[in-house]
Design a protein around this nucleic acid. Structure first.
Lengths: 312, 312
DNA sequence: TATAGCTGTTGCCGAAACGGCAGCAACATG
DNA sequence: CATGTTGCTGCCGTTTCGGCAACAGCTATA
């Protein structure tokens, strides 16, 4: 099913790899063929699409415009293929997800497992990265669905859902604060804390609040792994700060206690956004999973708010 | 700028004309070339795209899926072209509008004239038709922007705005009812009325209300032209029913009086929707006009509601 | 019922486009 | 300075595209 000019596929490959020869390798054609298609494209558009450097090619402004169009075409072609396939009963395809680390403990594995048990021929590709990288991966067409801390998102992305979860402190069961129902930032800073590095979005959520306080946190540990921070907190090394998306797991082996964070009397929220490329219609099977994801996150949001309502 | 396979353009032409030879004529190529491209497409998709009749070709289910994809591609190509052109300062293109008749008296001509005076190189194509035809023209890609009575719209269209205007009776200045501020349907039916034929959406707005009444309207005139109905009302032939979108014109040569309609004590609304193909990003100059259109209709909605607030 | 006009399809053939190979110059890295 | 990388370009065989003419099937008209 290759009814599109090879030029646009070659262009797409060159944009992704940043090199004509590398693109040619992934396409299994000679580099000269790729080079000529790019030159032909530039001639027809009437303007260079790439800037040539000794290392390879980078997009020009017009090139980025074409990249946007080409991505629209190729993604819509995927959707068309899926539509035709599902017409003959074959509900299969790949859902590619880019998300931040907080989802990996329970939300995503639970959902994927459940979905796979129903639709066995839908495969998944998941990649964990920082919030801004999630948005970038979506823009570049390297993921279908993105889950990230809700920052200001570029206009070519669409926020299909926004769920808010309480930010909280993770402390070991033996920790002096463990008996409390909620904690404030000030109370926490009296103890050793595990700070998130700037590459984690928790850093950007807490930094402005810490800056407002007079005291500076006692230096303990800085880390860039949610998982590592959790394990450190469990060993009593310090207090970690996270959004609480793993209630089930926590209650199972109750080594850790989650304490919702209060600031100036009100909860500290962490907004989780689900994103999709705006100029795109998702294949049916992807859309189906997306709806389940939204529903599940909404469910967890509701459950958490219920659990901590008396602490608000 | 023809970097897409000729196959999809040929397919698009065949779908529009419903015939290979006709498509070939509009494309200035031999019909055999078109025929072969269609056959090649069908081979690559693995399923027939058209049903062959003696009169020509009609789309199969798979064909309609491909038509959707091809339309997405071609419309996005148009947008890309416009984007590139506007990069070099050339802000030009064509805006194609499909709308119902109520807009032709003042809204559309005013807006187009104003827009043309600012952006002289943006041309317009306007076509007047019934509400359901407006939606169909959008779906078929024959118009960029559609304005119609807000019915249930198909999922492949997006309602970008919804404005409500009061439905009212148009009577000549000398008409016995002309002095009233509002009228009810019952009051009107005591006089000769000009009924809209089912092809006009006013028919579908009024019919359920008339059906609720015990008395049947006095037969007078049935018509399918908003303009004709207005002129007949001005000559005292009967009462016409319309949405009031021409305040300015009416106050200028006050031959006619517009009486907001009341039914069971509450106003009768006529919802006007602005539609766009859902799977599409509009070119910048089209989007610009669309925003002006929404603003203008919102403005008129506001003004009318103000003018008749005391009658509500 | 015969005819004229329409439909899509197919063989044939020249022209255009595509792609592979090998070699070029320019630049980066060691 | 040597080596490896980059993109680009003649040369040439293969594939694809498109035009012409002819064919079979259907419809409407005389």
């Amino acid at each position: 099913m290759r009814f599109h000019s090879p030029a646009i596929q070659y262009f797409h490959a060159v944009r992704r790899t940043g090199s004509i020869r590398a693109a040619a390798r992934t396409l299994n054609v000679a580099s000269s063929a790729v080079s000529r298609q790019i030159l032909k494209l530039e001639q027809e558009v009437g303007s260079p699409l790439f800037e040539r450097t000794a290392r390879g090619l980078t997009l020009t402004t017009v090139g980025e415009m074409l990249a946007r169009h080409v991505m629209n075409v190729l993604q819509d072609l995927d959707r068309f293929r899926a539509d035709v396939a599902s017409l003959s009963g074959a509900w299969h395809g790949n859902v590619s997800i880019a998300c931040i680390e907080s989802l990996t403990e329970s939300v995503l594995p639970d959902l994927i497992a459940a979905h796979r048990s129903r639709a066995r021929r839908v495969s998944f590709t998941t990649e964990v990265m920082g919030s801004s990288d999630v948005l970038e991966a979506l823009r570049r067409g390297e993921a279908d669905i993105g889950i990230a801390i809700a920052l200001r998102h570029p206009p070519d992305l669409r926020q299909v859902a926004l769920k808010r979860f309480r930010l909280g402190a993770l402390v070991a069961r033996e920790h002096p604060l463990a008996r409390r129902k909620t904690v404030t930032l000030e109370q926490c800073l009296a103890f050793p804390v595990i700070q998130a590095l700037p590459e984690l979005s928790i850093y950007h959520l807490l930094q402005p609040l810490i800056a407002q306080l007079s005291e500076t946190p006692e230096p303990a540990i800085q880390a860039n792994s949610i998982d590592l921070m959790r394990e450190l907190a469990a060993r009593g090394v310090g207090i970690a700060f996270q959004t609480q998306l793993g209630i089930i797991r926590l209650s199972r082996d109750a080594q850790l206690v989650f304490l919702p964070l209060d600031n100036a009397g009100s909860p500290v929220w962490s907004d989780l956004g689900i994103y999709v490329r705006a100029e795109r219609t998702l294949p049916a099977f992807t859309e189906s999973f997306l709806q389940e994801l939204i529903r599940e996150l909404g469910e967890r949001e509701r459950r958490e708010n219920e659990a901590y309502r008396h602490t608000a």
